[in-house]
Amino acid sequence: MTAPNELRLLPWSGPGDKPCYLSTDDPGGYMSRLADNIEAVQLGTASDLLDAASEALDNQGTSLDDMRCLVKELTGALRDVLRVATSRGHLRATCDPRESAN
């Protein structure tokens, strides 16, 4: 997860949508476990939304309002998944994948 003495990006935001960090060497501590559980819920929600999106795309009768609602929910889930990936160190701060696409 995180190296000793490294701050962990938590899966929620603080006031003003600013990132929250945890400083601890105890991966089994209360806040670490809480963050792990919230991340698991966020990833599960993203998976469920992905399934719902696939079904909506296959259904010709899906209304525009339903699609807009789904896109809004997917946007939030994607934001959560990116935060989890960043927290777990799967993204390098110096690498923006959008730059390599140009």
Rank of each mutant, 00 (worst) to 15 (best):
L34W: 04
L34V: 08
L34G: 03
A35W: 00
A35G: 13
A35T: 07
A35H: 05
D36L: 13
D36A: 14
N37K: 14
N37S: 13
N37I: 10
I38V: 15
E39M: 12
A40Y: 05
V41K: 03
V41L: 08
V41C: 03
Q42D: 02
Q42Y: 01
Q42C: 01
L43Y: 04
L43Q: 06
L43E: 02
T45F: 09
T45N: 07
T45L: 11
A46R: 06
A46H: 11
A46Y: 01
A46K: 07
A46L: 10
S47C: 11
S47E: 15
S47R: 12
S47P: 03
D48T: 06
D48V: 08
L49V: 13
L49N: 11
L49K: 10
L49R: 03
L50C: 13
S54D: 11
A56M: 09
A56C: 12
L57Y: 03
L57P: 01
L57N: 04
D58M: 15
N59A: 14
N59L: 09
Q60S: 13
Q60P: 04
G61R: 15
G61Y: 12
G61M: 14
T62I: 06
T62N: 02
T62V: 14
S63R: 07
L64S: 12
D65N: 14
D66R: 14
D66G: 08
R68F: 04
R68A: 12
C69R: 15
C69F: 15
V71E: 07
V71D: 08
K72G: 08
L74S: 03
L74E: 05
G76N: 11
G76A: 04
A77T: 04
A77V: 02
A77W: 03
L78A: 09
L78V: 10
